[in-house]
Design a protein around this nucleic acid. Structure first.
Length: 275
DNA sequence: AGGGAAACCCGAACGC
DNA sequence: TGCGTTCGGGTTTCCC
């Protein structure tokens, strides 16, 4: 559930403070606590706990759905998967109920990786290439052109929605923003990617930019009981609006399953090209 | 190569 | 009220 806009919101609050959070920029790590060992994908927990100590946060950025904490020696990557959140506060007491990993900084500041369903993972690496090299382009990158997007779509023969959610194809899009963007672009989620015209590709890329930027502007969506703070859930066009009227034409929103994922769309605005 | 399914998890929602 | 069951969601892995 945390997708590009939610991760971007968290990254910004880690970097700049705000959203009830303290900035971790420039802070030195004094100690790490791991309360569920499998949270740490690499290295081993003992090595991880030893290696992060005395490293300082130089920057925080985002690539796809990864939070990238640039430390003085290494990169700390956090992927929230579907139920993760990051809390930053003061003191050494656990900040939340589901803390799986916590970093304790100088100045009494703590970062907690909250992860109730234990899907999220943490990496400590000297080189992020191994993780980042297989990721597709960032949809919000101004260099990512409609022409390139069109060529990419044409070179595949896949249903458009699962393709948009494939991180190797394009980065950062999950179930919510895929449904929202396809609705805005008036494209049926099962449309074969190679049947999408240049005009439609242009419209879809524009729609992706719009929904992702709206998500960021509203600090993400608080659709789960885990990630809090965002307000985009109040502006969904189709996601989790099954049987409710389409905002454009009042037709009840349909829900089908595509690629094992709940998929919401307007049957009138987004007609199935195969029927 | 594409696509379906299962696995990883567990709180919440639902059914009775 | 309380129990058991089902569901969902990002990613990887396996199989057809």
């Amino acid at each position: 559930m945390p997708e590009l806009p939610e991760v971007e919101t968290i990254v910004r609050s880690l970097r700049d403070g705000g959203r009830g959070s303290l900035s971790i920029m420039g802070k030195k790590i004094l100690k790490a606590k791991v309360s569920w060992d499998r949270t740490i994908e690499t290295p081993s927990v003992p090595v991880f706990k030893k290696r992060v100590i005395n490293q300082t946060v130089l920057d925080v950025s985002r690539r796809a759905k990864y939070i990238h904490i640039h430390l003085s020696q290494d990169s700390l990557l956090i992927h929230l998967r579907m139920s993760g959140d990051i809390l930053v506060g003061e003191g050494i007491k656990p900040l939340g109920k589901y803390s799986r990993m916590a970093l304790f900084f100088e100045n009494n500041t703590q970062l907690s990786f909250e992860n109730p369903r234990k899907f999220g993972r943490v990496w400590l690496l000297s080189d992020t290439d191994k993780i980042f090299k297989d990721l597709g382009p960032e949809p919000l990158d101004p260099e990512f052109s409609p022409n390139l997007f069109f060529e990419m779509l044409r070179s595949k023969k896949r249903q458009i929605k699962p393709l948009l959610m494939d991180q190797k194809f394009i980065a950062g899009i999950g179930n919510i923003y895929a449904d929202e963007a396809l609705n805005l672009a008036k494209i049926h989620p099962a449309t074969s990617s190679d049947s999408i015209t240049l005009k439609e590709a242009r419209k879809l890329l524009k729609a992706l930019n719009e929904v992702l930027q709206e998500g960021i502007r509203r600090n993400g969506a608080s659709i789960d009981w885990v990630y809090k703070g965002g307000g985009f859930q109040n502006y969904f066009r189709v996601y989790q609006r099954t049987d409710e009227p389409c905002l454009a034409c009042y037709t009840p929103i349909s829900r089908i399953v595509i690629g094992q994922r709940g998929t919401h769309f307007c049957p009138k605005c987004q007609p199935d090209p195969n029927s």
